[in-house]
Amino acid sequence: MTRFWTRDFLIALGLCVLLLAAPLVTRNESVFFLLSLIVIWSIFALAFDFCFGRGGILSFGHAAFFALGAYGYTWATMDLGLGFGAGLAMAILCGAVFAVIVGLVGQRVTGLYFALLTLMLAQLLAIIMVTRLRRFTGGDDGIAGVPRPMFGGIDFFETVNFFWLIAAILLAVVVTMHVLNRSPLGQAIAGLKQNEERARQIGFNTARLRLAVLSISGAYSGLAGALLGALLMYVSPQLLSWKVSGDVLIMALLGGTGTLAGPILGVTLFELLKEVLSSYTEYWYGILGITFILCTIFLPKGVVSLLLGRDKSR
């Protein structure tokens, strides 16, 4: 806490720089598609881990914030004709607002019960969006033609250009989260995780702190969702699946929670394994599962612990 340049932060920055430098090595389209997925899911995993690793709030429903971000961006750009920036703002707002709603509904429950509540609310949202709100969501078919940004005369339909943009956004996410974690609010959130009762007893309104954690996490999740919509140029209720919530949890745990580098590493490992294994066998998810189990046994603090070592201050 005394140093600004913690090892964790430096590793996370290093990973961002490596990603940003990738176009210097290759120009292969499919490689960039994979790297783009890694970047976007990294933002999502960081958002999830802000809730779980920093605030100590477990959620099985983060898909809802992610998907609402994607839909929010789609509505803003396609229906309202707004630009890329405004679309992202809308996505952030949608994610944050739904997170606050979840937080308010779950005000009286904590731990696993809260996690189950998030799952329930996310599933409820999925059902409503597919059946009742078909006019806005395109139902099961989803919405195609989600726009990519247009500014500065740069062609963002070029995969490499879009990749550079989102990698820069990931870098911004890492930096803002690091600053946030070191801020008074970040410290209060750390206190909330380590000892909620004590935090309350020294004068923190812990109910409001929990809402702050959820809304920040929801906002970043919404941002990630919007970027995925723009990458695929398509949004569908698939984004709302409980599998999305499960994947992001596995990614964060695999990499190492409560860190910045961990979620990015976790996503990278997950996506690479998926890419490699799925070309050999259709049972790739099972092998991934075994890898995950082995990691939780031998590296309980995630892959990142190999790099952080015993450095207590991170």
């Binding site: 600053v179 070191r182 801020s183 008074p184 970040g186 209060a188 020294i202 004068g203």
Partner: peptide
């Protein structure tokens, strides 16, 4: 952290706590 809720009501969130 113990002093935080009492000493600073309005704090810019980006300022490093140290």
């Amino acid at each position: 952290l113990g002093a935080q809720p009492h000493k600073f009501r309005f704090q810019p969130f980006w300022r490093d706590v140290s």
